[in-house]
């Protein structure tokens, strides 16, 4: 029980700093590989080159990759016996301090009174914190994703069948609506993007899971071979749309697609697409006893 009292506020500030200022290596690799697909001198290629310079500079200077430091989404896997109330308080204190240190932009705006709280602390839902209990002998793992508003705004949810798109309640229909979502997003979600797709659920669980699946690394495929095939096909076909980096036109519109299947009601068949911008910021910290590791 004693370790449950350990104060991790400073370690969580470091998690926030790393997440905001250092893009994960798997994302940077994909962006680097995408450059070669764009024509020399094209706006698309220049945009990707600027993106890579920015990633490097942000890392060096320890400043946010994107000024929109987004919705902070924490997933906390805590060993049995830890206090979630204490962890929540530490996360909130860390968030306020990280904002003071300019790792985060003050992003929590009261929607009714239109006031920015100035410290990234809104109600219970901001920052968003999800707790999941694990066995007492397991490490504490805190994952953080920062999802910007531009890409959040282009997310979409479809209720199938969709007559306009000719999308039935099957994977063929799923494919159609996901491609429609990418076309409608154009460059506004800061393409090239990463797609999190949830099939099923209710309106809220479907959105939630379409984001949760984005905690996985690029290239991790759904264990179901048919869904894995659809993930790859969607990435390839989305790139045929020619929207390109920033919507300038080009070969690289989507870097990866991740699908998660959920339970649904007989009456409902939701397909939810969460669009993640190229500034795909996600990191985790693992706490084993006194040791804290960052990934």
């Amino acid at each position: 029980m004693e370790r449950a009292m350990r104060d991790l506020t400073n370690e969580i500030i470091e998690l926030i700093r790393r997440t905001s200022t250092r893009l994960p290596a798997d994302v940077e690799e994909r962006l680097r590989a995408a450059i070669e697909k764009e024509a020399p001198g094209s706006a698309a290629r220049n945009a990707l080159e600027t993106i890579l310079k920015n990633i490097e500079l942000s890392r060096q200077k320890s400043t946010p990759i994107c000024q929109d430091t987004g919705t902070p989404i924490f997933y906390v896997h805590y060993p049995e016996g830890w206090s979630t109330r204490a962890l929540r308080e530490q996360i909130r204190n860390a968030m306020a301090e990280a904002t003071k240190r300019s790792y985060m932009r003050p992003n929590a705006v009261d929607a009714i009174y239109d006031r920015n709280t100035g410290n990234n602390l809104g109600g219970d839902d901001f920052p968003y914190i999800h707790f999941e209990e694990v066995d007492a002998d397991q490490p504490l793992v805190i994952e953080l994703m920062l999802k910007g508003g531009g890409c959040e705004n282009v997310g979409r949810q479809y209720s199938l069948p969709d007559n306009e798109l000719g999308a039935d309640r099957d994977l063929a229909g799923v494919r159609k609506v996901v491609l429609d979502a990418v076309q409608k997003a154009q460059g506004q979600g800061c393409a090239p993007g990463i797609l999190g797709v949830a099939i099923g659920g209710d309106r809220s669980s479907s959105y939630l899971k379409s984001k949760e699946v984005l905690f996985e690394k690029i290239g991790v495929r759904n264990p179901d071979p048919e869904l894995a095939k659809l993930e790859e096909r969607l990435t390839e076909e989305a790139n045929q749309l020619g929207i390109g980096p920033m919507g300038f036109g080009g070969q690289t519109t989507v870097l990866d697609t991740k699908i998660v299947g959920l339970s649904r009601l007989p009456a409902s068949y939701f397909v939810t697409v969460s669009y993640m911008c190229w500034a795909y910021r996600r990191r985790k910290m693992i706490v084993r006893g006194d040791q804290v590791e960052y990934e």
Binding site: I51, N54, P64, I65, C66, C277
Partner: peptide, 10 residues
């Protein structure tokens, strides 16, 4: 370029 925030702040 969207997201190129540190670069543009320079």
């Amino acid at each position: 370029v969207g997201g190129a925030a540190t670069f543009l702040a320079q």
